[in-house]
């Protein structure tokens, strides 16, 4: 599959994530959109990993080129999991205090 397709796909997903961050007010949805962005990156990384692997395979049949990208994806997932735990804890804390998860509600700090 031409790599461009993957790039387009990943970038589109990424942009959708960004648009979500920009247009939604619910903190959880925003957070989910960020997760969407991360997944787009993951997909892109895996695609690139296979691309480089494919190039390397031509010369070396057992080439492990590109494996680091897949491991990177793994680490991204690790980080995402950690982030989720912290992030949700923060959102819950917020909700406990204000009974709202509307980010527009967050404007005590300004100017």
């Amino acid at each position: 599959m031409p790599i461009q397709y993957y790039i387009y796909l990943a970038l589109t997903l990424f942009t959708i994530g960004i648009i979500g961050v920009l247009t939604r007010r619910n903190a959880i949805i925003i957070f989910m959109c960020i997760e969407l962005m991360l997944n787009a990156v993951n997909l892109l990384l895996v695609a690139f990993s296979k691309m480089h692997n494919g190039i390397a395979l031509v010369t070396n049949k057992d080439s492990m080129v590109g494996i680091d990208a897949q491991l990177f994806v793994f680490f991204i997932m690790v980080v995402a999991a950690a982030e989720v735990s912290v992030g949700l804890a923060i959102i819950v804390m917020m909700y406990r205090n204000t009974h709202s998860i509307d980010v527009n509600f967050l404007n005590r700090l300004k100017n």
Partner: peptide
């Protein structure tokens, strides 16, 4: 200038984008 800092995450990110 400080009015740009309006406290809204959405607009912050919009400006960043």
């Amino acid at each position: 200038l400080r009015l740009i800092q309006n406290g809204q995450v959405g607009s912050y990110i919009l400006i960043m984008v």
